[in-house]
Design a protein around this nucleic acid. Structure first.
Lengths: 352, 352
DNA sequence: GGCTTGTGAGAAAGCGGTTTCAGATGGATG
DNA sequence: CATCCATCTGAAACCGCTTTCTCACAAGCC
């Protein structure tokens, strides 16, 4: 009754191994961890015993004794988002090179359980990588102030000197705006992501700054999925926009589908630009103009920063990675000169 | 030196809380776990102290003392595969309803590290869900024989009475073959998945059984990604096939892209059928005919089976979930009668 | 009023490892 | 040949928590 029965196999402990090999538990530990020299003959006996008994050290006991878990935890909002696997693979690689495992948890975009999950991870991992665009500033501050190694992923909290690695969403959207302005667009619409998302607010901030390029922007509520994009696209027609920017590639693709159904040609009649550059080679119906950050690099830098935090306690500066513009088939100059629409912001109005 | 410094905050233990509240550690434990009645006044003091000190129980110590982790582990080959998120969400939901967390690990399709990861999971989780199509029978037998709760996902090992929940890949491919035969196809090609994959061999087994439908099948080496499909598609032309079956939807979509580039119309000149029905609404260029199993149900059943295994030790029978056929736009009757191609397997040879 | 119960809290014994500490052994040295 | 030192091994302490065990105290009973 003391211990939950572990399946049927009674658990074999380090003492059992010691007994079988005719040595003490300490020696078994030393052999297995290589922390001190032991007589090769004894070591061999120990290894035999380990093999024979199928001994596996108890992770909790090790964690308790060593004071560390050998694990880092990553919390992502949604594993279905094709954005994350790329960064996770890089994180795993870095972690493995430092002899750590990585465990992934998913919050399902629910800020309520998100907080709990982070606490769980902090209790059972040496360090935590947190990708949360939604969590509130106060929550975040509480979590980072806990004195436990934690690095924010794709989330910079202004005024909070928390270690973080993020793509430069603002800069990315600026690239897009510059591209569109250069093509001659004047009116653009934006299919907005989740309301409370920091990543979304950065994009919007850039769109507003882009008024300096002579762009006028209409923001339409939408979401983060292709279905959202498909549904929200209907409203674009009413805005008079010649170009459509979006929260991410999925939204953009959904919107393109809808626009085509509505008889609007992309990019001839409407340029559509994505965000993230999720890999959908040979799969998607449209080769999107979009911006991206190397996701491998993002994951790697974040993992390295976390590692530094865990080993040296050395606080990394928040790091922002520049995004790159990929011009593909979904953007083009507007079909009609921009002057047609209103009082003509660019150059002089046509004579007469 | 004894303990790794935990960031800067010196760890606060249950005794610290006890001291602060003026009670013993045992009482703190009792209050926090509600395992016995304690004086409400004391309980209040304990709660205050917990809040004040920001106490969090050490997970390793709890795990060690309780003999269980409150966690189940899931190992998937590749998080980038859009197949898994659906099942993971269902698994999480079930786990949460039983008061357990789920941690996910990714093997990156590398059987070598896969084995290690499973062992890691077994050492730090109460139960493990293993999705491995590649791992060898012997390895699998060793792992399942360890007496630790483990359920295989999408992998049935013939002759090994291991708890498992799997989609009926064989049946799924039979559905596809039936569909194609009914449309009038006689020669079909198959873009094969990974060599050593059980899921792949089940599909091939069905293709061979489908000779009974009058189908002749050519198997072409391929892989599991859209890129693979794109590249392997070139070889299909040489086979004289009027229909193409694939390892999964991604391969199918990649193949369609390539066929269109080659001027082959889908489905008029070539029917293409996928596998899995990954959700790519409004995103993919083609609405694929495909087969699927409800991924939520798959995850749920697997999680429930694991839970039963952990609590009651009650071995579930291997469970196979039927797949369903979704006929969409990528399959159609062959343009030319099947007899045209060669000596005519179906019906009598045309009179000379 | 003395004795049995019942109740709630502290002391202490694990859980299964790691690591310090002390001791035994054997070789090198004076 | 006695002494010292370097090595290697086992005993024991400890990691932080849960849980049994024990005991003090108060209430209930004859």
């Amino acid at each position: 009754m003391r211990n939950l029965r572990q399946g049927r196999g009674s658990r074999v402990t380090i003492s059992d191994v010691g007994a079988a090999a005719g040595v003490s538990a300490s020696t078994v530990s030393r052999v297995l961890n290589g922390t001190a020299k032991v007589d090769p003959a004894l070591a061999a006996r120990v290894h035999d015993a380990v093999a024979q008994l199928g001994y596996r050290p108890n992770a909790a006991a090790q964690g308790l004794a060593r004071g560390e878990w050998g694990t880092i935890g990553v919390l992502v909002p949604d594993l279905a988002n094709p954005y994350f696997p790329g960064v996770l693979k890089a994180v795993s690689a870095v972690a493995r090179s430092h002899g750590r495992r990585v465990m992934v948890m998913e919050s399902d975009d629910d800020p309520a359980i998100e907080h709990d999950l982070v606490e769980d991870l902090m209790r059972s991992c040496d360090g935590v990588l947190l990708a949360s665009s939604r969590m509130e500033r106060a929550d975040l501050a509480a979590l980072t102030g806990r004195g436990h190694p934690l690095v924010l992923l794709n989330r910079i909290v202004p005024g909070l000197a928390a270690p973080a690695v993020s793509a430069d969403f603002f800069g990315g959207m600026m690239l897009i705006c510059g591209h569109l302005a250069q093509l001659g667009h004047r009116r653009v619409a934006y299919l907005s992501g989740p309301e409370v998302s920091w990543a979304n607010s950065e994009r919007i901030r850039a769109l507003e700054a882009a008024k300096a390029f002579g762009l006028s922007v209409t923001i339409l509520p939408c979401g983060a999925t292709s279905q959202c994009g498909y549904e929200a696209a209907t409203a674009v027609a009413g805005t008079g926009a010649t170009a459509l920017t979006t929260y991410n590639d999925l939204v953009a693709l959904g919107a393109v589908t809808r626009m085509r159904e509505l008889g609007v040609r992309v990019p001839e009649e409407l340029s559509v630009v994505g965000f993230d550059d999720i890999a959908l080679d040979h799969v998607a119906h449209t080769s999107l103009t979009t911006v991206s950050v190397p996701r491998g690099q993002l994951g790697r830098q974040a993992a390295e920063m976390l590692e530094a935090l865990m080993t040296e306690g050395h606080d990394g500066e928040p790091l922002t990675l520049p995004m790159e513009l990929h011009v593909r088939d979904s953007s083009a100059p507007p079909r009609v000169p921009a002057v047609l629409t209103s009082e003509g912001g660019a150059g002089k109005p046509s004579p007469g």
